[in-house]
Design a binder for these strands. Structure first.
Lengths: 266, 266
DNA sequence: GAGTGGTCTAGACCACGCG
DNA sequence: GCGTGGTCTAGACCACTCA
């Protein structure tokens, strides 16, 4: 139980060699950092209950209000989930009441009902070596081992027939994802990121997407059952775990004839 | 200076006819509502300094901490901007150090420098009547007066030549935007939403976008100087002012050969 | 130095979930 | 009824801005 600072009021934390700016950091930020460390270290695992504010306050030798502000920020970043009367939990993709937290493609008719969590078909799951481009995105070196997955998501149209709507290629660093197979992915109930959490201990925290309009090649058009001249959304995503470490590169092709990519700006 | 509640602790606010649930609302939420009212009423205008926390606390008969929490939330929603040592200001699109807060199209080479705030050409600005579709999006009735604007944004390519990249059609309710002309828009320095603020008193607070991949018609292809078979991003935006009132419908076509739509997920 | 927002504390009470 | 997070208060001190 490290006492993060000495006095009562905040002080410039550790002195970094060149102290151009004293780099004042509020106490609650330091507490936030300490909590983050424990999350990264896997001390508190996704879905688990973390110590109560009062206990954390005692442990860190600060007031409950200071812990509260640290936890507030972490909850705002979707790393923790507060539940009044129960406690504070490590956020998870498993039972996140919003399934598909990162999937912004929604049916045109505002039906959020999501007719069954989409049908997934895994076309490929192989171990390969990272190209320069893939390596750069994942923070690896060219030639490093990576897992490559290709899958198709189909959504039920009006009649109930499944329409292939998303074609995705995933690249994952070979180390953490050793042992990933199409069978394991196909057999898993729930979001892919939930599988990554429970089976590989990798929790995706945030992601960046680059979106373009493109035409599919013959292969892609065939898989998505569209004419070659059909414009599609190209969605390139890099997903990060704790500490801004990239852990997934994903290239998706979205049909937008019955769905659209929805984004809220503020 | 209305005292929002009677006692010391929070109480269920006004009793709504059917009191199925007492609808408990924290004090700071009520304060937030009161501040919002004043913002909507234009009592504090964009860019202006609002009263200090201490004065607001006195005015509302609550503690500074309660005002602080209300202001914190409003700042989080980009309605207010806090500046330490100076005060709290009403947010504005004018000098928002991030120009183009709602424009997510960025050059492929991560250069955020934004080579000159884009060159704008206004092709049209006319008063028309709302179609059923436009009316629905803007919360009007079919046939109501609307302003319709068509413009092209061009960005400098490597050499320095301007490349037409965005073709946008805007629809605005005729009432608030009476007197809008292409000349006024062309002559205005700064973001369009800043013009709306200073010239028409309409402040855009948030927006929703629906994105698809499409092919341009002959007209559109000509304006954007692309082949007819070039896939483009279709970005349909509804922008809202206070109180979730829609005030703009915007349909954009984005070229994505040198730029991409960037989105951060968390 | 005065005024503003920012941090930190300590204590009280409330709403919620659960046994 | 207990423990949790949620709200509210009052007061102290710190960091920043500007005259």
């Amino acid at each position: 139980m490290p006492a993060p600072i000495s006095g009562n009021a905040a002080e410039p934390s550790l002195d970094t060699g060149l102290s151009a700016t004293p780099a004042f950091s509020p106490l609650y930020q330091q507490i936030k950092g300490l909590i983050l460390q424990r999350l990264q270290a896997g001390e508190w695992k996704p879905g688990e209950l973390i110590p109560s504010e009062i206990e954390l306050a005692a442990r860190f030798r600060v007031s409950q209000g200071t812990v509260r502000k640290a936890v507030d920020e972490l909850a705002g970043e979707n790393l923790l989930v507060r539940r009044q009367g129960k406690g504070t939990f490590v956020a998870t993709h498993t039972e996140q009441h919003v399934r598909y937290r990162f999937l912004k493609l929604v049916p045109d008719d505002g039906d959020l009902i999501r007719e069954g969590p989409a049908q997934r078909a895994f076309l490929e799951c192989k171990r390969t070596r990272a190209s320069a481009e893939i390596a750069r995105a994942l923070g690896l070196r060219s030639g490093d081992a990576v897992m490559q997955v290709r899958r198709v998501l189909s959504f039920a149209a009006d009649g109930g027939a499944q329409t292939p709507t998303i074609l995705e290629d995933l690249w994952l660093p070979g180390g953490p994802f050793k042992g990933l197979t199409a069978e394991r992915m196909a057999g898993f109930r729930g979001p892919t990121y939930a599988l990554f959490e429970t089976e590989f201990g990798v929790r995706m925290v945030r992601a960046e997407e680059k979106i373009r309009a493109v035409l599919p090649d013959a292969d892609q058009a065939g898989i998505l059952q569209v004419a070659p001249a059909t414009p599609l959304l190209s969605v390139e995503r890099v997903a990060y775990t704790y500490n801004d470490t990239p852990m997934e590169l994903r290239r998706g092709l979205y049909r937008t004839d019955t769905h659209h990519y929805r984004n809220d700006l503020s």
